[in-house]
Amino acid sequence: NEEPLPEGWEIRYTREGVRYFVDHNTRTTTFKDPRNGKS
């Protein structure tokens, strides 16, 4: 039961299956979860 991502964020996966987060607001990507700060 995960809380929803902030507005404008999306979860994607690399070809290796590593989860990362896309911030469409700033057009950046990060491996850090914007909901809780954990990677």
Rank of each mutant, 00 (worst) to 15 (best):
E2K: 09
N25C: 12
L5F: 06
E10R: 05
E16D: 13
F31C: 14
G8C: 07
P4F: 07
T14Q: 02
T30A: 04
T14N: 09
R27T: 08
G17I: 01
G8I: 02
S39T: 14
F21D: 00
E7R: 13
N36V: 13
K38I: 15
V18K: 12
Y13T: 06
H24C: 08
E3H: 10
N36K: 10
G37H: 12
E16C: 15
D23T: 01
R27Q: 14
T29D: 05
R12N: 06
R35G: 02
T30Y: 05
P4L: 08
D33I: 01
R15A: 12
R35W: 04
P6K: 05
K32E: 15
R27V: 07
G8P: 03
N25T: 09
R12V: 07
N25I: 11
P34F: 01
D33H: 03
L5N: 02
V18L: 12
D33T: 00
T28E: 08
L5G: 02
E16M: 14
D33K: 02
L5C: 00
E10H: 07
D33N: 02
W9H: 00
T14G: 05
V22I: 13
E7W: 10
N25D: 05
H24N: 11
R27D: 13
P6V: 03
G8N: 08
V18S: 07
L5I: 06
E7P: 14
F31L: 13
E10N: 05
T30E: 02
P6G: 05
R19K: 11
R35H: 02
R35I: 03
R19D: 01
V22K: 05
S39Y: 14
T14P: 01
L5Q: 02
F31W: 10
K32N: 13
E16Y: 14
E16K: 15
G8E: 03
E2P: 10
G37S: 12
T28W: 06
R19S: 06
L5M: 11
F21L: 01
T26H: 06
V18E: 08
F31T: 10
K38H: 14
K32P: 02
G37F: 11
P4Q: 10
V22D: 01
R12P: 00
Y20T: 02
G8Y: 05
F31S: 08
T26V: 03
R19W: 05
